[in-house]
């Protein structure tokens, strides 16, 4: 953009520098402020200017090739930088632990109940005892 500005009929940059050089002993900030305030660009933008600018930005923004591991690290870093994500992840792991414990305990208590019921039946049933006798 500066290149384009300098190409205007009255280059504002030159005017600005001249002004700063001239007014340096009288307080350059006041003159600079007034000059910046009065600075108007009336020339129309060249055809396709916006598109050209975005194309240049896009060309420079093409990421350098990174390894999958580095990409994963970067992604994880970004995810876990968010507190909501970190808390959600921890809550998920705790919930998974709760469910796993509940499921295991339910299955184990059912097995134990069946075992104790069988032992009771075995203790009162002579035929069951005779069948299991060596």
């Amino acid at each position: 953009m500066l290149t384009w500005m300098r190409s205007a009929a009255e280059p504002p940059g030159k005017q600005l520098i001249d002004s700063m050089n001239h007014e340096s002993s009288h307080g350059p900030n006041a003159n600079l402020d007034s000059l910046l305030r009065d600075w108007r660009v009336d020339d129309p933008l060249p055809l396709g200017f916006n598109r050209a600018v975005w194309r240049r930005i896009a060309a420079q923004a093409v990421p350098a090739p990174v390894s999958p591991v580095a990409a994963l690290r970067l992604r994880l870093d970004r995810w876990f930088a968010r507190p909501a994500w970190s808390i959600g992840c921890a809550l998920f792991l705790v919930s998974a632990g709760l469910l796993a414990g509940y499921w295991q305990a339910t299955a184990q208590t059912a097995r134990w109940e069946q075992l104790m019921a069988s032992r009771y039946v075995h203790s009162v049933d002579p035929y069951a005892q005779a069948a299991s006798a060596p």
């Binding site: 876990f80 921890a90 632990g97 796993a100 414990g101 295991q104 305990a105 339910t106 184990q108």
Partner: peptide, 29 residues
């Protein structure tokens, strides 16, 4: 470092929760 710490702490907390749930639910039996 931070994601790893969160994941490890979460996993440890999950395991502790699982053990505590199992322990308390099977205490009677």
């Amino acid at each position: 470092r931070r994601p790893l710490v969160i994941l490890v702490l979460g996993a440890i907390l999950g395991l502790l929760t699982a053990a505590a749930t199992y322990w308390s639910m099977t205490a009677h039996h």
